[in-house]
Design a protein around this nucleic acid. Structure first.
Lengths: 128, 128
DNA sequence: CAGAATCCCAGCAGATACTG
DNA sequence: CAGTATCTGCTGGGATTCTG
């Protein structure tokens, strides 16, 4: 593991760089389903089928894939109870809760602003 | 414009619905380039070519497209000075600044957490 | 129940060339 | 300078099927 490099990745500008290491983590969080999975896990631990039923439109492949990515990033913890049939539950880690707070903050802001944004869109659409 | 409908879109759960109207606004903000454009506009007004030069890897089509979407949503204001050659500048609206604050807050958090997330990823990768 | 494996497609993104 | 127009391809996402 490299401790230092020629390029200062910690600089404020690094996000503008093509190789900014934050970019793919950002993409994990803002992909189509991650927000919804994190939000669905906020109240507490959930089973696979509970998540699938709660999140409208998701299929098992995408749920599984999203959960695995979030688990890999250390945002979600997966727990298996080895019985028949198997029981698997998911919960947020401390990190996951922080991420969820940020994302849900953004969503809350969007929700509060939605009507004004929609109005802006209509104005734009009508002006051409 | 409809004032009410059978479905309660204002409920907290609406984000989980397939037709949640916040979803596409969220996607505009978290698309590949919107964050970078908003961040680049935070210090103040910028010209088209300044943005293109600042944001590594973007091409003119994507910059133009992203700016138009953000303008349509009322997050960015476009100003044309009709001279030859034309001068066009972009700046954040009040709304745009709020959106940028949220997104940059998320990015800052990711930056601060990146090393721990990377460590989690390595642990995950090595454990299989 | 909780996934894995496979196949498939639309749509976003990029490269390139052109224009008021 | 600040964009459009057009073509192309890649891959994220989805439907379906299979399994421990």
């Amino acid at each position: 593991m490299e401790v230092s490099s020629q390029v200062d990745h910690a600089s404020e500008d690094s996000v503008f760089r093509r190789d900014c290491p934050s970019r793919d983590i950002f993409e994990h969080l803002t992909g189509r389903w991650a927000l919804l999975v994190l939000a669905a896990l906020r109240p507490g631990s959930r089973r696979f089928h509970q998540l699938r039923d709660r999140i409208e439109g998701i299929n098992e492949k995408m749920l599984s894939q999203t959960l695995r990515t979030l688990e890999r990033d250390g945002l979600v913890k997966r727990t298996v109870v080895p019985v028949r049939p198997p029981q698997v539950s998911y919960e947020l880690t401390g990190f996951g809760e922080e991420a969820a707070r940020h994302l849900c903050g953004l969503i809350t802001w969007i929700g509060a602003s939605a009507s004004e944004i929609r109005a802006a869109q209509e104005r734009w659409d009508n002006s051409r």
